[in-house]
Each structure stands twice: as structure tokens, then as C-alpha cells.
Nucleic acid binder design. Structure first.
Length: 477
DNA sequence: TGAAATGTTGGGGCG
DNA sequence: ACGCCCCAACATTTC
């Protein structure tokens, strides 16, 4: 083994070349760079990537490998546990250093701390960087020195702590080793579905990868962001950025988003968009300081909440067969495309937790498996927010009325017609309440309620009363 | 980043 | 002219 010592660059949720501090540092170190991605399901346990995320990961890794090859390198694929995979690669390549960008999931940060300590003990340089957040979760502190639990003061503190945000460009060339270590074949990881192939809707909706992420950001800032403040709540409109999966996988980073958005003319839309980026930061802040966030209610009183155990209700929700059109449209959009409009996420989540009174963990698990942007911090924080047991949460008594939400945010019914086509013949004024339609209106629309489209599986007003009663029975309410 | 119930106000119909 | 009632519109409170 006479090859020169290398720098091992460990890719994780930072699948890009631009604004990648670990990559920049690896190139600057001057040694040949071995780039590796480790499939670490074993480390992640119950939070191993879900089905839709795995589809995205497959394509993002293929895209990253192509980008690396264009710079003279390639992406080495290995299976975890990560500690073993990294150790083996260090030995195989004679690595003098291992660099990576941080992850913040409790399982990942604990694991990474162990790996770093082990490398350092053996005299191997180990350095971690920040590619994924505007500020580290521990850098933002209240006046009393603790973590924030309310968004608005967090947002003020984050903003005040940010100086000039200056993303760094991708390296022009990445020095490659004489010999690349062996790599798994991406196809052997079976990240994409085969039989049945349920990914056709995902393929139609998304292009994973760094280049597509950059295009998506530019298109958004050149267009929809101007009306973002008003139209971001209209699910039938292309009014949101749709950057969430790109951000989750680190195909684009928040510094790049912030920098480009700050340089864009316009006030309201940009400001509102940046605050959504800040919600993502807030979620990571919470996950870091409250590592039980994915499983335990932040407000301990909720541990005693009498959640229902009703598999039929859960299945109706999952399959988009609740009989509430806006709810069903959202759940079907999720199933078909791996994504759901944010307004509809709130409506469907409220329906699960408050109308069906099913545990928010059940919704969290379903979203985890079906969303291409499934992110432990955002998913956990948001479900707790909806359920009313989280930080700065919507109060439990804030119950969405699905027909009113539909009438308000999908007034022409365009969104429902797209995802619940069996209702496409209904008049605008009836499409969110087909159970109130007269027999003749249903007949004209070609809808047999209970056959073509379900009758409501529950009565919203009664369900609301039931949920409020349960809430009031909790100690302290 | 709710909805429903309850309270208040003021215009207009009417005796 | 006046008081009474109704009720829509809006505000406030409550869940």
C-alpha cells in the first residue's frame, strides 16, 4: 500500500457539491478525496428512511455520483452500521482524515460523536461541519440561556444572529485517489419499488438532485414568491416553493436559499418565505434540545390523553376515504406524489388527531413512510404542533372544520377535482359538502354517495365535541 | 397557521 | 314620533 493518504468525505443529508463545507475542507486539505455514502438503516432504527424517501434517495445518489464523476471523482456506496463502514474505508484507503456535515437526529448525533471520538483516538483527523442549518441549534439561546419554545422570539433571535449569509461555490475539481475503493451497486440497494411499481406519480412530480433543486429555487424566486403571502395557502395553485425534499436531502442548503431570496426584489412574499425556512430551523432547534420530540408529547400532560384505537378510521384516512373531500384529496395527493400542500397537511392532520382522535404518532408514522420530504425534525415538530402538545402549538381546541377550510382555501374546488375525480361534476358550492347535496344535484354530478364516493365516516360537529370533552378531562385543563 | 357561541350595535319595519 | 322587535354585521369570548 503505497498510495498517498486520502481524505474520506462522508456524504449524508448534504447531497450537493455547492455550499458544502465538508467537501470544501476536504478539497482544501490537498489529499485525494474519497467520497462515500453509507446506507445506515441499522443505525436509524425505527427512523430509517421510509418508502418515498428511499425512492428520492436513490435518484439523488445517482445524481450526486454523476456530478462527482464530472469533477474527476465518484461516489462510493457502502452499507452500515456507519461506524463499521467508515472504519473499513479508513483502512482500505489509508485515510488521514474523515470529514462530514452534521446531522441532528438524536440517533445520528450520538452515533457520530462515537465515531468522531474513535477516529481521534487512533490519530485520524475527524471534523464535522454545518451544511444543513442557518445556525447550529445550540447557538440560539434565550436571555436565560435556554432553548426557545416559541417560534416568534426564536425567529427574532435567529435573524439577529445572522450576519451576511454567503454560500460557497462548488469546487471546480476534486482530487481523486489512484484507485477508488469498491462500491456497492446502487441498484442492489433496492431503494426504488419494483413490484408493484408505485413510483410513477413520484417520477411525474419530481426531479431529485442538486441541479433540479437549484432550478426549482430560481423558478420560485422568479415567479410564485411574488404572491407567496396570499397564494401559499391555496392548494390548487403552484404557489409554494416545493423545495422541502431538496432541502431535506441537502441538495440545496438553507444558506443558498437565504442568500438568493434576500437578493430578490419584493417584500411580503420573501419575508413570509424566509419565515418558513425559519420554521425548519425552529424544528431542528426543538429536536436538538428535546430529543424525545419524535415520540413523546412536549407537554407532559398529554401523555394521559385517551387516544382512540380504531384501525378502520386510520385506514380510511390513509386511503383518502373519509368522505370529507379536502381531507381525501390531500391524502390522495400524498399517496400519488409523495408530497402534500402545507395547508392540506394541517387540515388532514387536524382531522386525524381531533376528528378521529387517533394518536398523532400514527399520523407521524404514515407521513414518514409516504412523504418524499419526510424529515424527523419537521415531521415531529409539526405533528406535535397540530396535536396541541408541542412547542408554540395550536391549542387543542383549535379544530379545523374540513368543509369550511375547503370552501375558504379551495373555493372553486379545483384541488378536490384534481385528486378526487369522482366528485369533479359537483358544483363549486357543494363540492366540499357532498352529503348536503340534494338527490338531484348528486344525480346530475353522477355521484352515488356511499358508492362512488363515501358518505362522511363521522359527523364533524359531534367529533369536535368529543375531542373537546376529552381535552377538558385532561388534568390541568 | 380556527370555529362556534355569545354579545353588541344599529338600521329598518311596523304598530 | 316613538318604542319595540328582528336580524344582519361585527366584535368578543369560549372552546
Amino acid at each position: 500500500m503505497t498510495d498517498a493518504p486520502t481524505t474520506l468525505l462522508w456524504f449524508r443529508l448534504d447531497l450537493r457539491l455547492a455550499d458544502n463545507p465538508a467537501l470544501a475542507a476536504a478539497v482544501a486539505a490537498g489529499r485525494p478525496v474519497v467520497a462515500v455514502f453509507v446506507l445506515d438503516d441499522a443505525d436509524a432504527g425505527e427512523w430509517a428512511a421510509g418508502g418515498a424517501s428511499r425512492w428520492w434517495l436513490h435518484h439523488s445518489l445517482a445524481s450526486l455520483d454523476a456530478s462527482l464523476r464530472a469533477c474527476g471523482g465518484r461516489l462510493v456506496l457502502r452499507r452500515g452500521p456507519a461506524a463499521d463502514a467508515i472504519d473499513r474505508l479508513v483502512a482500505e484507503t489509508g485515510a488521514a482524515a474523515v470529514y462530514w456535515n452534521r446531522r441532528y437526529e438524536p440517533w445520528a448525533s450520538a452515533r457520530d460523536a462515537g465515531i468522531k471520538a474513535s477516529l481521534l483516538r487512533r490519530g485520524i483527523e475527524a471534523r464535522s461541519f454545518n451544511a444543513g442549518l442557518l445556525r447550529e441549534p445550540w447557538d440560539i439561546r434565550t436571555g436565560a440561556g435556554g432553548p426557545y419554545k416559541v417560534f416568534t422570539p426564536f425567529w427574532k433571535a435567529l435573524r439577529a444572529s445572522l450576519g451576511a449569509v454567503a454560500p460557497t461555490p462548488a469546487p471546480a475539481r476534486i482530487p481523486a485517489p489512484q484507485r477508488q475503493p469498491a462500491s456497492d451497486a446502487l441498484g442492489d440497494w433496492r431503494l426504488t419499488p419494483a413490484r408493484p411499481d408505485w413510483a410513477f406519480g413520484l417520477r411525474a412530480a419530481w426531479v431529485p438532485g442538486e441541479a433540479a433543486a437549484a432550478r426549482r429555487l430560481i423558478a420560485f424566486l422568479d415567479g410564485a414568491v411574488q404572491h407567496y403571502a396570499d397564494r401559499r395557502n391555496i392548494p390548487a395553485d403552484p404557489g409554494t416553493s416545493r423545495l422541502s425534499p431538496h432541502l431535506h436531502f441537502g441538495e440545496i442548503g438553507p444558506r443558498q436559499v437565504w442568500h438568493a431570496a434576500s437578493a430578490t426584489e419584493d417584500g411580503n412574499g420573501i419575508e413570509r418565505f424566509l419565515s418558513e425556512i425559519a420554521w425548519r430551523e425552529f424544528s431542528y432547534h426543538l429536536l436538538h434540545h428535546f430529543p424525545d420530540l419524535p415520540a413523546q408529547p412536549l407537554r407532559p400532560g398529554f401523555a394521559a390523553f385517551p387516544w382512540a384505537d380504531e384501525p378502520a378510521g386510520l385506514q380510511a384516512w390513509q386511503q383518502g376515504r373519509t368522505g370529507y373531500p379536502i381531507v381525501d384529496a390531500g391524502m390522495r395527493e400524498l399517496w400519488a406524489t409523495g408530497w402534500m400542500h402545507n395547508r392540506v397537511r394541517m387540515i388532514t392532520a387536524s382531522f386525524l388527531v381531533k376528528d378521529l382522535m387517533l394518536p398523532w404518532r400514527a399520523g407521524e408514522d404514515w407521513f414518514w413512510d409516504t412523504l418524499v420530504d419526510a424529515d424527523l425534525a419537521s415531521n415531529s415538530a409539526s405533528w406535535q404542533w397540530v396535536a396541541g402538545c408541542g412547542a408554540d402549538a395550536a391549542p387543542y381546541f383549535r379544530v379545523f372544520n374540513p368543509s369550511l377550510q375547503g370552501a375558504k382555501f379551495d373555493p372553486q374546488g379545483d384541488y378536490v377535482r384534481r385528486w378526487v375525480p369522482e366528485l369533479s361534476g359537483m358544483a363549486d358550492g357543494l363540492i366540499h359538502t357532498p352529503w348536503k347535496a340534494r338527490r338531484v344535484d348528486l344525480a346530475d354530478a353522477g355521484v352515488r354517495l356511499g358508492i362512488d364516493y363515501p358518505a362522511p365516516i363521522l359527523d364533524h360537529a359531534a367529533a369536535r365535541d368529543r375531542a373537546l370533552a376529552a381535552f377538558h378531562a385532561l388534568p390541568g385543563n
